[in-house]
Simulated scan of single mutants.
Amino acid sequence: MEFDIHSYNGGLPRLLYYPYTWTKTASFVYVDSPVGTGFSYSISLDWSTSDTKSIEEASQFVRKWLIKHSQYLNLRLFIGGDSYSGLIVPKITKRLIEDNDAHVEPHLNVTGYLVGSPTTDQHINVNSRVILAHRLALVSDQLYEELKISCKQNFVDVDPSNTACLTALSKYEKNIEGILTIDPLEPNCAFASPRPELPLSVRKSLVDQSSDEQQFLLSPPKVPSDLRCRAFNYALAYNWANDPGVQEALHVRKGTVKYWSHCNQTISYTKDIQSVIDVHMWLSQRPLEVLLDVGDHDLVVPIVAAQTWLKILNLTVSYKWRPWYVDGQVAGYTKKFDQEAYGYRLTYAIVKRGGHTAPEFYRRECYEMFQRWLHFYPL
């Protein structure tokens, strides 16, 4: 489905049929996680949660759902997610496989997992933003060299006494403050005015700064008159999801969620996982099909980060770097890895001009990518 923005004049947005939805290829169970996001709720007064707790809850949900709907137990099971879920999905997959190894009933047919623009290692992720910003010509060669030398290529947890590095980071942030980091190619309509200048003393590292993606979703965006702005789609989502008729059609229990929001910032959430590279290594010794897709213009989770942690896995290249096509046009580039001894295969797909996350920007291309991967076709 997609919103009909051209006929929108207030009230409930009209939905249009979209022919390349992923549900044409596979059955999906969408989960609002952690509890408190989307239309999910808890009868407990304590909604505090964490990466570790949400992984445990999601793993239990998958098993309980399949027990209740046992007709799906024999189907291939894939776990998927994107962005911050890059820290969550591999852990859920590992947990379900470990349960199978321990002969927990019922046995789940875990076939693989997919992660899109995934946060995989926080340190690598943050450092990669500076590198990609330079590659996209958002940062000059001179400033890039200044950053590399003064910060020693480490932009996380910078020593407060390293004035040269802090100064270089200040220049870097000034360079990109008007850029929409989820996609630098699109107009930045998220802020009415530039973000306030931060004192040098508080700029300890890039990781201290909220990404544009997070700030973009802090509060319901007002409907802009300029349809170029991606914020328009987000504004329509608020109008649609909070309509009583829509909530009734979705079987949302009355009184449980007073107001739907794209990102619930009121949840007490502890980020207690910083890296899952070791989990990917563990999973690479299992017979799994894996899809990793990234947009090459994503400054939130840069393509550089994916390339960095993929090298750490030290997988065997089974198909070398090449373009992949949709309707005769280059949709991106791909490379395939494997661990033949274990039956593990990983498809790495880059979506050309894709932002954060790629399916939001290039839906047709990402549908073709998904359905080919799912049916074991080469991209």
Rank of each mutant, 00 (worst) to 15 (best):
L138K: 07
K152H: 08
L283K: 02
Y30N: 11
F361T: 10
I149G: 00
F39P: 11
E146D: 13
T119L: 12
R345V: 09
K53Q: 15
G112L: 01
Y333F: 15
A241W: 08
Q371W: 00
V89A: 04
Q274T: 14
K24P: 01
T167F: 03
S59D: 05
L136V: 09
A58L: 11
V202Y: 12
V156K: 11
K258D: 05
C165K: 06
S284V: 03
V62G: 04
I267K: 11
V31K: 02
P196S: 12
M369A: 03
V126T: 14
A235W: 00
C165H: 09
G355F: 10
S219G: 03
D298F: 10
Y8W: 04
Y259L: 10
Y342P: 02
I267F: 08
P13G: 11
T21F: 03
E105Y: 07
K94T: 06
H134N: 11
S205R: 09
W260I: 08
T119K: 04
G295T: 11
G332Y: 01
V252L: 07
K53M: 13
T37P: 03
L227T: 14
A190H: 10
N264W: 03
L288D: 02
V279F: 01
P34G: 05
D157V: 00
R372P: 00
V156D: 08
Q371R: 15
F3Y: 14
V252R: 10
L87G: 12
S284R: 00
E248Y: 09
L198P: 04
L15A: 08
K271R: 13
P118Y: 04
L132M: 12
T256I: 07
P19Q: 04
I88V: 14
P118N: 06
Q214L: 07
